[in-house]
């Protein structure tokens, strides 16, 4: 990847609402708990002995959903910028390798979503402090629930990018994206088998070790990324 390509990508997403979505996602997740705690704080505090832990778990309930939805929306936005007047053909006829074009798109999306995760941690922490819980702030738990889902959902991001860039019909990536979001939602009611990648952001697995989802997410994410990139390079430009 080169710096110039990334800075030209940043220019392209101007006025398209990418930054707004990046902030809105994590804010929405915490805002749900704002409503929750504003209406029934007394009741919620009685539910557990560790207020911070219970609060963080509450926040994290919506994180996988927001994250995967964010991935679907941002990816489809980003590819729609090139599809709108088919700027792919102009982009690829410039002196750049197709691999670097693909990696730049992925890097941009991964960075925006990482920023969302940082903001999620920040918003969670700030509202937590505002709620003035008894007991110490659980920094490690807060860190885990802010960033583990991000790494665990990288395979979804790699898959969405692959399908969006090679599909002639954008209904395909959007349909798969929507199905993915539905899977993430239903997973919280009746968990799926561990091999389904849309389960991973929930950090659930049969061994009860969230770190497994993180490691799997990074490895499988890289694999899908590589397959997607090779396919993108192999194909003729639309």
């Amino acid at each position: 990847m080169n710096k110039e390509l990334l800075s030209s990508e940043l220019l392209k997403i101007k006025r398209k609402g990418f930054w707004l979505l990046t902030v809105l996602g994590p804010f929405g997740v915490v805002a749900l708990q704002m409503m929750n705690y504003a209406y029934r704080k007394e009741y919620l505090l009685k539910q557990s002995t560790n207020d911070w832990e219970y609060y963080i778990l509450n926040v994290s309930g919506f994180t996988p959903f927001a994250l995967v939805l964010g991935m679907v929306i941002l990816t489809s936005f980003l590819t729609s910028i090139e599809n709108e007047t088919n700027t792919w053909k102009k982009l690829i006829s410039l002196p750049v390798s197709k691999a670097s074009v693909y990696i730049t798109k992925f890097t941009l999306l991964a960075s925006l979503l990482f920023l969302s995760s940082v903001l999620l941690m920040l918003f969670t922490l700030l509202y937590g402090i505002f709620l003035d819980f008894n007991g110490e702030i659980l920094h490690v738990t807060l860190f885990q629930y802010s960033f583990y889902p991000y790494f665990a959902s990288l395979p979804v991001l790699a898959l969405q990018l692959w399908i969006s860039t090679v599909s002639k019909n954008q209904a395909v990536p959007i349909t798969i994206g929507v199905i993915g979001v539905i899977l993430v939602l239903t997973n919280s009611y009746s968990p799926f088998p561990d091999w389904i990648i849309w389960k991973w952001p929930s950090l659930m697995n049969q061994w009860d070790k969230p770190i497994i989802n993180v490691v799997l997410g990074i490895i499988v994410g890289c694999l899908i990324y590589i397959v997607g990139m090779l396919d993108f390079i192999r194909r003729d430009v639309k």
């Binding site: 390509l5 910028i81 709108e84 007047t85 088919n86 700027t87 006829s93 750049v96």
Partner: peptide
């Protein structure tokens, strides 16, 4: 490709950007 300039079929442009910004996108890469 560094020594070629091209225009293939319909014009490719980013409608939400200005003329200057459109060229800036390509200029950065070139």
């Amino acid at each position: 490709l560094k020594r070629i300039g091209s225009l293939v079929e319909n014009p490719s442009y980013y409608p939400h950007l200005t003329a200057y910004e459109n060229l800036e996108v390509w200029r950065k890469i070139l």
